[in-house]
Computed example of a mutant assay.
Amino acid sequence: MVSNETADEIQEYLGVVPSWIEALPDSAADHSWSVVRDLQLGETELTRREKALVAVGAGAAIQCPYCIHFHREEAKLEEVTEAELAEAFAVAGTVRNFSTVLHGAEIDHEEFEAETESIVDHINEQQAAAPGDD
């Protein structure tokens, strides 16, 4: 259970103290809210819109109906369109799909990193040579 001070703060931010906060053990409740407040709701390097898209994609990838519902609603608050949500789900699905392939095929991690570095170098070279970038 969260402290009274934290409960008041959550009430101010969200209008309610969600049941999932109440389900946390005392030793983690206040800290867990701090993470949500500072990382998800706070001003960070990512915009709230970007964080909502990351979160809804991650929720879909881990197949969490709670995360999908909450972060879809969060995305709507940030005016994310249905087309953008569909793309976020597709990107998350692609990452999950290829993670399965990479792990199942037991692709050598060092070789994968070297190939990725080569790909990045190639793309950087292409972008540097692209006309009209002056």
Results as ranks from 00 to 15, higher is better:
Glu111Ile: 15
Ile107His: 11
Val35Ala: 00
Ser32Pro: 00
Lys76Glu: 06
Leu85Asp: 08
Gln63Ile: 06
Ala60Ile: 07
Ala114Ile: 15
Ile68Tyr: 10
Gly93Leu: 13
Ser32Ile: 01
Glu78Thr: 05
Leu102Met: 02
Thr81Trp: 01
Glu87Leu: 12
Leu85Tyr: 13
Leu77Phe: 05
Ser27Glu: 14
Ala29Leu: 06
Arg37Ile: 04
Glu115Pro: 00
Glu45Pro: 00
Ala58Pro: 01
His103Ser: 14
Phe98Ile: 09
Phe98Asp: 04
Glu50Lys: 08
Tyr66Trp: 11
Arg49Ile: 01
Glu87Gly: 03
Ser99Tyr: 11
Lys51Asp: 01
Ala105Gly: 04
Ala90Val: 09
Thr116Pro: 00
Ser99Glu: 02
Arg49Asn: 01
Gln63Asp: 11
Ser27Cys: 06
Pro25Asp: 15
Glu73Gln: 14
Gly59Ala: 03
Gly93Ala: 10
Leu39Phe: 02
Glu79Lys: 14
Ala92Phe: 14
Lys76Cys: 00
Glu43Met: 11
Glu74Val: 04
Ala88Cys: 07
Val80Asp: 03
Ala83Phe: 09
Gly59Pro: 05
Ala28Asp: 13
Leu102Thr: 09
Leu102Cys: 02
Val95Lys: 05
Ile68Met: 09
His69Arg: 14
Pro25Gly: 15
Ile107Pro: 01
Leu39Gln: 06
Cys67Pro: 08
Leu53Arg: 03
Ala114Arg: 15
Ala114His: 06
Phe89Gln: 07
Val120Thr: 06
Thr81Asp: 09
Ala86Gln: 14
Val36Ala: 12
Glu74Ile: 01
His69Ser: 10
Lys51Ala: 03
Arg72Thr: 04
Ala75Asn: 02
Thr47Met: 08
Glu110Trp: 05
Ala58Trp: 04
Glu45Trp: 03
Thr100Leu: 15
Leu46Ala: 12
Leu24Arg: 12
Thr47Tyr: 11
Glu78Ile: 01
Cys67Trp: 05
Ala90Trp: 02
Ser27Asp: 13
His103Met: 13
Thr116Phe: 11
Asp38Glu: 12
Leu85Trp: 11
Val95Gly: 09
Asp30Leu: 01
Glu84Pro: 06
Ser34Ala: 07
Gln63Trp: 10
Phe112Arg: 04
Arg96Met: 11
Leu24Thr: 02
Lys76Asp: 06
Glu79Asn: 15
His103Gln: 13
Ile119His: 05
Lys76Ser: 02
Glu110Cys: 02
Thr94Ala: 13
Val95Cys: 10
Ala75Trp: 01
Val56Tyr: 12
Ala29Ser: 05
Glu43Asn: 12
